[in-house]
Write a protein that binds this DNA or RNA. Sequence first.
DNA 1: CGTGTCTTTGAGGCAACTCAACACTCGTGG
DNA 2: CCACGAGTGTTGAGTTGCCTCAAAGACACG
Lengths: 222, 222
Amino acid sequence: MRKQAICAALEDHELDELQSIMIASSLAPHQTLVEEGEPRRKVFTLTSGMLRLYTMLPDGRRQITAFLLPGDYLGLGDEETYDETAEAVIESKLCGFPVAEMERLMELHPRLHARLYQMTRIALRQARDSQMILGRLAPVEKIASFLLVLSARAVEHGQPGNPVHLAMTRMDIADYLGLTIETVSRSFTKLRVQGLIRLPDAHQVEIVDRRALTAVAGIEPR
Amino acid sequence: MRKQAICAALEDHELDELQSIMIASSLAPHQTLVEEGEPRRKVFTLTSGMLRLYTMLPDGRRQITAFLLPGDYLGLGDEETYDETAEAVIESKLCGFPVAEMERLMELHPRLHARLYQMTRIALRQARDSQMILGRLAPVEKIASFLLVLSARAVEHGQPGNPVHLAMTRMDIADYLGLTIETVSRSFTKLRVQGLIRLPDAHQVEIVDRRALTAVAGIEPR
DNA sequence: CGTGTCTTTGAGGCAACTCAACACTCGTGG
DNA sequence: CCACGAGTGTTGAGTTGCCTCAAAGACACG
């Protein structure tokens, strides 16, 4: 029962076999789970906490491509190696499954296969939304849409959607949205001064005027 | 036999059933295949030509998220509607499959399922690469990496990798890379002046110094 | 040989970045 | 208990580079 609770986000109860190959683990804040280029031995699913996925350029520039929340997967690429580094933003727990076993189970259980397929499609959708945000939105618009997405995802996870909790740092937000930390900070300030949000502290954002915030974002989160 | 040729890029010969539900069609340049928000009735695969996928903001800003080449898929999202508009860049041919039938076949044929899953993972990988390009590269770097990616994809399609043919307009490139057409043009000029490329005409790029171009791109295409 | 579309080039402004200083929190240790 | 330092976030000043606006060149098509 406890095991099921641990990986509840993962699967239908029918697939007990998954549990037999599952390896639970946990990460302290800033701890690295896998590094870009490392052989892809396991597929992971996050059960609690938050991860950041990123790639680095030779000169140190970083692009965070996603923040993972419980239920999200990692290591679904079809290559021999991980294509991104995964690090814990906050204390996190996850379940790992050896790829070989996973692939065997996927063949046996179409529903597992369908589930991973679906999660990949959702990740693709999010990446495409992110392309629009990175390519065509102004800094304030980026921050506004970022907040709305976080709010929506919190609701999906059964948490309150309004005071949005930012577990990540300004640096993380900057590297996710293609900005500098200063511009991130100034954009928050701008939204606060305009009365669209309140900032009780740096990691807590109260959405005061959701309608206006949505208008600023230009696109509603989906 | 001819039908197989048409959709050769699509599937192993074993799945003749696919052919029975397949609907071939073709598009003239600039013709729209599907529009964002429209009910998702078919899954498509491109057999020849090139498509652009994009989403628009209310104020007219456009973000192209991908250029599709033969063998690429479209409409794999898991929602009720298409989430992007698809337009032909040049004359294109494609195969369509009703989603309901497709899903039925996917359950019957794990290999088909696996194939679509794989194509989705590849698309996700490309989208993530694109996030890095959009978020962290300077204009010249964006153009350099764009050229290298196009070159690599041409090779994958059994075509010469060096004179890179740009079927799309500068506007398309700008909307794909998050730039303006002027900046795209100036970046091409900059690369030309530095002797890394030659521009016989606006839609033909000869890579003169691939090593240097890769260095400028910061990341090698994969 | 016009006409329209696409591309390139130039000039100037503004917004985001760079550099810098300061405020704040939170441990640690004197 | 407070001093100190590291890490994080905010704000200010100046600069750079991309975008905006403008015009001219290149090319296809009728």
